[in-house]
Design a protein around this nucleic acid. Sequence first.
DNA 1: ACAGGCGGTAAGACTGGTCTGTCTTCCCCC
DNA 2: GGGGGAAGACAGACCAGTCTTACCGCCTGT
Lengths: 201, 201
Amino acid sequence: MNPEAKVPAFPAVASGPANPADRIIDVAYELFSTRGVRDVGVNELIERSGVAKATFYRHFPSKDSLVLAFLEQRDKRWTMDLILAEAHRRGSTPREQLLAIFDVFGDWFLREDFEGCSFAKVLLEMGPAHPLGQASISYLAKIRGLIQTAGEEAGLVRPEEFAYSLQVLMKGSIVQAVEGDLQAARRAQQMAAWLIEHHSS
Amino acid sequence: MNPEAKVPAFPAVASGPANPADRIIDVAYELFSTRGVRDVGVNELIERSGVAKATFYRHFPSKDSLVLAFLEQRDKRWTMDLILAEAHRRGSTPREQLLAIFDVFGDWFLREDFEGCSFAKVLLEMGPAHPLGQASISYLAKIRGLIQTAGEEAGLVRPEEFAYSLQVLMKGSIVQAVEGDLQAARRAQQMAAWLIEHHSS
DNA sequence: ACAGGCGGTAAGACTGGTCTGTCTTCCCCC
DNA sequence: GGGGGAAGACAGACCAGTCTTACCGCCTGT
């Protein structure tokens, strides 16, 4: 028999969850969000999550399906838990909360692992026709819906138009930040204030 | 000998310039700008430009060097000849010319071959550390310089800050347009008008 | 209560394809 | 005759995805 019997009974590698699928998702989240989905191969994901290849393909029938799961996680962890919850925490009125988005952005831009908006990156990488581009568009539209709701709560007129315009500022500031402009959030916030002003009354 | 002697004396394929290097650049411009640099392989470029592989590598020691040449072409054909010249043509005052940028964008967004800003795409695809990302940042900075100059000619205060902010609007509207928002240019133009207003006197 | 089977997992070989980049061969034209 | 070019074989790396083997723990049926 094998003289070096496998003792572990539990993960030798990957300190995360015991559940293999969750370990894979955690690793994918880290690698995809910092380096992009095209730059990270299945083999690296497998190695980093300490999982067998067959196990990977048991849980995710293709790499694209893992990317879909990643986008879902990104929506949950980034959109909802990071940006939305934090902006909600920082502002006491709906209007303040809308502007606080750009305060949160400002902090986010300074993070070492800041690498831009995964939805926009996947969309630009795969194109709007690809299923993954379509999924990204959906999540971006979901964000726009949240903004529209916030705009309605703030009593703004034409909230849909407002949401579209605010998203222009959000995306623009993100790309600008990737380029290295650390003041991008502040500039966008100033324009957001004018935008809110013009949608008031 | 070869019974089917090569008659051509001139390109069987690729209707463009006789010069192989120029044919390669033309094909690269078309394919890179519509599908992204990562999606187009050297083999396809060679086939489409009717050029031998050795010839390709004689003129461009690596694919990256061709991408660099493409970015230079993009700056020339897109930034200078399409956007800047056209905006200049459409507006009679510096202020109008700045706003006209978004009219040109609006037309550009409607084009069938519209696929976003190559500089931003390469930057997001390769990251700001990669040489190609660096080159993209340079060209984007060059655009910002042009905007700043236009802002100065329009007599705006704090023209540099103005240029940064206007670029947020430009990038944001482009990403939004890729996502499918055909009104992105109009929304950005409205915000640009407010921005100009606040930088006046 | 226990034996056997079965499902989930690790480890990794393997396949078929694609990619960049090199090299060879032949040809044409100067 | 020599240099640029066409055509394409080739090498080496990587990629997604399949398959094999072996191990372990749990559940089930007797």
